[in-house]
Structures are given as structure tokens and as C-alpha cells.
Design a protein around this nucleic acid. Structure first.
Length: 500
RNA sequence: GGUCCGUUCGUCUAGGGGUCAGGACGCGUCCCUUUCACGGAUGAAACACGGGUUCGAUUCCCGUACGGACUACCA
């Protein structure tokens, strides 16, 4: 049977990086199996709906290159793919389940249940308590009909029969067992007419012919309910196989990675930036932080999965080929930003100059740098082995695009002494006479100049570097000079002298 | 509290009855380079604990400890 998997986020805000990883694993599995990757929007909680979240999810998936084959914004024949557009479908199935005797109507209000929980610490709506509550199991059927027809608010609850052992074969964790007596009678259809996750997810997965459910570990405890639902509908033969992914944990401290950890640890935890209502609800994304999507994908792929062996860098094709659910880890994986940065660094190194220039172009433009493609390509070529983020090209390496703003005074105090100013002036004059201005010729002349004057390279090179870049870090001096050209180079040599 | 899941260097992980327990990130040292980085070499660094099973357990089983998730008319 053709593999069909889905990524089913809730549009309650920006898509967390853990969600991106879930999407990635679903995508990799689908691609490897020649299957279909579906995006379904689970917006059944109207109270938590956040405008723009759906667009964000789609844009984020596109950025990391995980465009679905079917789904909201991507077409497909099994739609609609937005759960709020499927309301009637859930209604139909909820009532069908009641008729089949696996669910019932309940009139208890949230307030009543809350009060009950106040007095009874561990109150649960289940096989032990339901007979003392306000539902179609105890009420006279005529009363039930009447209350429903007069629009009394009601919910539909799953009728969990005690005394059963429910076995789940998880592809990652093996067999997981639950006792039905421990399970509560979950709400399937809410009083507002919308389904809960439990109902919607089973109905949709069945209707959309999903073969594998790959989702976060937080769903493992409710999977027993899901199995009961498949059985209740008589769909057990086509029930998808379950795989529950380990969670992504905070870099330090306890618990799973949360959106607040981004600000706390000074790192992105979202793929794209998100502008919320407030400052606290706004986040920087990996994209805006200067990450390459391939690097993010590689990093995320290995956060909880590894095919075995020593390989760390995987192309998209290699990931697809090597992926397997069985090699997904069982324990939570700590989010290691240092490692994420190192992946980015490696991917930037590996990128050709022309592609990098294309990516840096808008960043340069934002700073007002107007340079030719040829110049930009050479500039990124000089910088690419010393940057971590795309911004570093125009921030750390700003001096390739505009005059030096700050001099490393510490080095100058040490070096700008004795007859050095005079020597430097002489060198500047010599440079001014150059016919051919390139790195090789420059290096030759400077070297012979140093010899003539009986100096050491250390007397001159650091000063040249400071003149050109202002700092003791950066590309080779001669390469920079060639890139800047004769005029700019001379200007900077003179600027240093007049600053003393 | 209850239910379920988990536990190999600081972190991500490989491995799996007999290995010098391997790689990567980070950290240290050295080489390259009179810059910084890259690159290369090298070092420190782990099988949570206690019982079994076994000739032999990091690996299999059971406990304990610790960690995590769930426990809503949220997903």
C-alpha cells in the first residue's frame, strides 16, 4: 500500500522548531518510500486560532524545502485539509459512534466538572463515574432527545469499557500497553460543535488514507484512545502504524524546549521570525539569524535520528536514502545551538561564491552597499571561511564594503612607533606607483620593501591589515588590497596615517 | 498523585554479550599561517546504580534512582 503521511500542526502561532523536525521526518519517510506527504491544518480550537499562523507554517515548510504534496495551499484530492472546513464530517462520525454504542452524549458543563474536581482531587470522567453524571447513559432517552433538540449544550464522549488491555506496536518504542480501566472517557465533540483532536485526527487519518502516523511523544499517552476509536468505527484493519518521536529538550535545565528559550539563551527556536502582539510574543527565526535552510535541515535531522556510522553531513538525497524510522532514538534530545552553528559554518564553506553572493546581496543592499556581482563574489570568497552566519559577511566583513570605522588601538600602540610612521609613508608612496595592482605583485613588492628597509614582516603587515580592515582578524592582506583596488587601498593607507 | 516513555563523553550520537567503547560539536595542545579563520595532528572526556542470566555484561531480564511526557469541552 502506498505510504501516506501527514504533518498536522495547529495554527496557534509560529511553528516551533520541533514541529519542523516532525515535518522533516514525515517528509523524509514519504520521499524514501515513494509516498505522499500531506499538510493538514488542525484548527479545531477557535479560541486559540492565531491569524497568520497558517501562512507562517506554509512559508516555513517552503523555506526548509519540505513542500507537501497535498494540503492547505498545495492542492490534493482528499481535502478539505483544514479541519474547520470539515466540521460536518466530524458531526456525522461522532453521531455514528454513538449509534454504534461506543460513545454517548454528555450534558455536564465545564463549570460543573471543574467544581467536581475541586472537591474530588483526582476526579476523572470514566467508567467509574459516568453513571453518576449527566449523560445519555443514565438519562432517559426521551429526555436526551428533548435536550438535544432544544439546543442544550452537549458533548460527545468516548465510551471506554474497562477490563481491556490495549497493545500498541510503536515503530520506535516497540510494544506499549495500556489498561482500558485507566483511560478516561475523552470528549470527542465539543459543545461548540467542533471535534477535539482525538476525533478529528482519527477521522481524517482514515479518510485521507494515512498509513503512518509520525508525531511527537506527547501523543503517546492518548494513543490508546485513538486505537479504541479505530476499533469503534470498525477501521482497525487500516489503522496507521504509530511512531512517537522523542522530544527536543532545553539546552540547559529541565524540560522540553519552549518558545521562551529562544530569548533566554539567545538563539532561534523558530524557522522564521514571528511578529506577535507583544515583544515577548515575537521571535527571531533561523532564516533571519542567517542560517542556510540545508544546514537547519541537516542539524534537525540528526537531532533524534542517526542512520549509524560516522557520517554527519548529509545532502537532501542522502537523508532521504538513509532515513528509517527504526533508527530514530527513544530519548529526548537536547537542543545544541553550538552544533547548529557549526553545521551552518560548514554549509557556508561548501557553498560556491556565486550562490553565496546571491544570498548576501539583499543583506548588502540593506546596508546600502552597492557593489558588482564580481566584487561581491570575491568578497564572500575571502570571508566564507571565517563566518558563521550570512550576516557576518556584511557585519564582521563590513570593511570590504566601506571605509574602516574602528582601528585596533591596542595593536597600533604597540606597532606605530619609532621610524615606522616614516617607513609606512614611504611604503604608501611606493604602492602609489604600482602599475599592476594585484595580490601577487603587491606581495612581492611589499616583501622586497621590507627587505630593503631591513624590517621584519611583523613591522609592516599588521599595520597594513589595520589600515585596510581596522582589525587584526580577517582575510589575507594582499587579497583584500586586490579586492579593494588601488585607490581604496591608498586611501585607507593614508587614512591610517592621518588618524595618528 | 496516577498512567506511559526514557537513561553511552558537557551536548548530538555510533556500537552492541568478549571493542583500546568510535565519530561530531564544544574545550586543551601542536602544526600550517607573522592576522583571524579554514585545514591537519593530538589530548582530556561516557556505558546512572543494584541485582540477576552467562565462562563473560555497556549490550539481555528485574528492580532502584533520576529525567521526560500526559493527566482540558488545547493540540
Amino acid at each position: 500500500m502506498a505510504v501516506r503521511v501527514r504533518f498536522a500542526p495547529s495554527p496557534t502561532g509560529a511553528l516551533h522548531i520541533g514541529g519542523v523536525r516532525t515535518a522533516l521526518y514525515n517528509y523524509l519517510f514519504a520521499r524514501q518510500q515513494g509516498g505522499t506527504f500531506i499538510l493538514r491544518i488542525e484548527d479545531t480550537d477557535q479560541g486559540r486560532y492565531v491569524p497568520g499562523a497558517e501562512e507562517y507554517i506554509i512559508e516555513a515548510l517552503k523555506w526548509v524545502g519540505l513542500a507537501p504534496d497535498e494540503g492547505v495551499g498545495f492542492g490534493g484530492n482528499e481535502g478539505p485539509y483544514r479541519q474547520s472546513d470539515r466540521k460536518e464530517i466530524y458531526h456525522k462520525y461522532a453521531h455514528e459512534l454513538v449509534e454504534r454504542g461506543h460513545a454517548y452524549y454528555a450534558f455536564d458543563t465545564p463549570v460543573e466538572l471543574e467544581e467536581r474536581r475541586q472537591v474530588e482531587e483526582h476526579f476523572t470522567y470514566n467508567h467509574l463515574t459516568r453513571n453518576g453524571l449527566n449523560n445519555s447513559l443514565v438519562l432517559d432517552s426521551a429526555v436526551v432527545q428533548q435536550r438535544i433538540s432544544q439546543d442544550d449544550p452537549f458533548v460527545v464522549r468516548l465510551k471506554v469499557e474497562p477490563g481491556r488491555r490495549i497493545l500498541i506496536q510503536d515503530l520506535i518504542r516497540g510494544e506499549v500497553a495500556f489498561e482500558s480501566s485507566e483511560l478516561d472517557d475523552k470528549v470527542l465533540l465539543k459543545a461548540d460543535g467542533m471535534p477535539t483532536y482525538h476525533l478529528a485526527n482519527i477521522v481524517d487519518d482514515h479518510l485521507m488514507r494515512i498509513t503512518h502516523v509520525i508525531r511527537g511523544e506527547e501523543w503517546l499517552p492518548s494513543t490508546a484512545h485513538h486505537v479504541l476509536l479505530y476499533e469503534g468505527f470498525g477501521w482497525q484493519d487500516t489503522m496507521p502504524k504509530f511512531s512517537h518521536l522523542p522530544l527536543i529538550m532545553k539546552p540547559v535545565g529541565n524540560g522540553k524546549l519552549s518558545k521562551r528559550d529562544g530569548a533566554k539563551f539567545g538563539m532561534p527556536v523558530f524557522p522564521l521570525s514571528w511578529k506577535g502582539e507583544t515583544e515577548e510574543d515575537s521571535f527571531e527565526g533561523f532564516r533571519e539569524a542567517g542560517f542556510l535552510p540545508e544546514a537547519v535541515v541537516n542539524f534537525l535531522a540528526l537531532l533524534g535520528w542517526h542512520p549509524g556510522g560516522d557520517q554527519e553531513i548529509f545532502s537532501r538525497e542522502e537523508l532521504i536514502n538513509a532515513f528509517s524510522i527504526e533508527h530514530i532514538g527513544k530519548s529526548g534530545a537536547r537542543f545544541d545551538y553550538e552544533k547548529a552553528k557549526s553545521f551552518n559554518q560548514k554549509y557556508i564553506h561548501a557553498k560556491d561564491n556565486a550562490s553565496l553572493a546571491t544570498m548576501v546581496r539583499p543583506l548588502a543592499a540593506a546596508k546600502g552597499y552597492e557593489v558588482s556581482d564580481a566584487f561581491l563574489e570575491k568578497a564572500v570568497g575571502l570571508m566564507k571561511e571565517r563566518v558563521t552566519f550570512l550576516q557576518d559577511f556584511v557585519e564582521t566583513g563590513y570593511y570590504l564594503f566601506e571605509p574602516v570605522k574602528f582601528y585596533d588601538e591596542e595593536t597600533l600602540v604597540k606597532r606605530w612607533n619609532g621610524d615606522i610612521p616614516a617607513v609606512f609613508a614611504a611604503l604608501t608612496e611606493k604602492v602609489a606607483t604600482f602599475e599592476e595592482f594585484n595580490a601577487v605583485a603587491l606581495e612581492e613588492s611589499v616583501k622586497s620593501f621590507i627587505q630593503e628597509k631591513n624590517l621584519k614582516p611583523g613591522d609592516i603587515l599588521p599595520l597594513l591589515r589595520i589600515a585596510l580592515a581596522g582589525t587584526m582578524k580577517g582575510p589575507a592582506v594582499y587579497e583584500m588590497a586586490e579586492l579593494l583596488g588601488k585607490n581604496a587601498t591608498l586611501e585607507r593607507l593614508k587614512a591610517l596615517q592621518s588618524s595618528r
